[in-house]
């Protein structure tokens, strides 16, 4: 594989993790536009652990995920009081807060950024991305996921059939933040240099876009979305300067024809049926 494609596939893997981090939070009906903030914390924390404290990468990623999970839970509590667009704005604010924190945090380089990380292989990135995707797919078949869907569909009714909606929503925030932290840690060790601008709100938007494009009601949607967002602009190079416009048009087309995104449960069921029939 050429270095060019290796770089693209690394981007897909990292974006897949970012998209999954949005997906599990969205599964409880909460839209987070601040996941780049969790990603940034994960990136800086994991880099600090491997560079300054000489930790192995795996341990650093696990520690970053746990720490970010805890921060996600803390952020999840005030988020309970907000709905829809207000929650989106508040999480966006959180992301920008994290970015400006690192901009002014001199011990980690401030606006100059932080470097010294050892480059991580494409295989390692995909081991994590694939592992987390698999974990989400297993979770989707669980009793717990049924409860998440109930909270997503009708929070009031979910509470009235005995589901602890607070625990469900806050837990999803924590889990999503942990996944974003892993994305951040891998991003830092793939690019071996990070700066606060890497974790701006455009990246949060990109995560959400991948989920909405690929299919926001099924886990594999995040994979499809991440692939398309990274690869499509490359494949569209034939239209040169117009490639981003063409990409935008494609996005609008998909959302006009399939509001739920490219993949959804009926489509997955049909694909599975065809496979077993063949």
């Amino acid at each position: 594989m050429s270095t060019y494609y290796a770089g693209l596939f690394a981007d897909v893997g990292i974006l897949l993790l970012g998209a999954l981090s949005v997906y599990v939070i969205l599964a409880t009906g909460q839209l987070s536009l601040g996941n780049a903030g969790f990603m940034g914390i994960g990136a800086y924390l994991a880099s600090y652990l491997t560079v300054t404290l000489q930790w192995p990468l795996t341990a650093a990623l696990v520690a970053a995920a746990l720490a970010c999970g805890a921060i996600g839970i803390i952020v999840g509590f005030p988020a309970l009081r907000l709905r829809g667009i207000y929650l989106a704005m508040a999480t966006l604010g959180f992301g920008e807060m994290v970015r400006s924190f690192f901009l002014n945090f001199e011990p980690m380089g401030g606006s100059g950024g932080f470097h010294g990380m050892t480059h991580v292989s494409l295989g390692t990135i995909w081991l994590w991305a694939g592992g987390v995707l698999l974990a989400v797919l297993v979770l989707e078949r669980s009793r717990l996921w049924l409860e998440l869907r109930a909270v997503h569909d009708d929070e009031t009714a979910a509470g009235l059939v005995g589901l602890d909606t607070t625990l469900t929503k806050v837990g999803a925030f924590g889990f999503g933040a942990a996944i974003a932290a892993i994305a951040g840690g891998l991003f830092a060790h793939h690019h071996v240099y990070i700066e606060p601008a890497n974790f701006g709100f455009e990246r949060s938007i990109e995560f959400v876009l991948a989920v909405i494009l690929g299919g926001s009601t099924v886990g594999p949607g995040a994979l499809v979305g991440a692939m398309l967002i990274v690869m499509l602009p490359e494949w569209l190079r034939v239209v040169a300067d117009w490639r981003l416009a063409a990409f935008g048009a494609f996005l609008i087309l998909v959302l006009l024809t399939r509001r739920q995104g490219i993949l959804d449960r009926p489509l997955l069921a049909r694909l599975a049926f065809r496979r077993s029939a063949a």
């Binding site: 297993v138 979770l139 669980s142 009793r143 717990l144 049924l146 409860e147 869907r149 109930a150 997503h152 569909d153 009708d154 009714a157 979910a158 059939v161 005995g162 589901l163 602890d164 009601t217 449960r265």
Partner: peptide, 24 residues
């Protein structure tokens, strides 16, 4: 619940009393 089948409604309405790893 908009996304659920009839059977899923009846399942989800029986929450586990205890906490549990079994929910996974």
């Amino acid at each position: 619940f908009a996304s659920m089948t009839v059977f899923e409604h009846l399942l989800v309405a029986q929450p586990h009393q205890g906490a549990g790893i079994r929910r996974f």
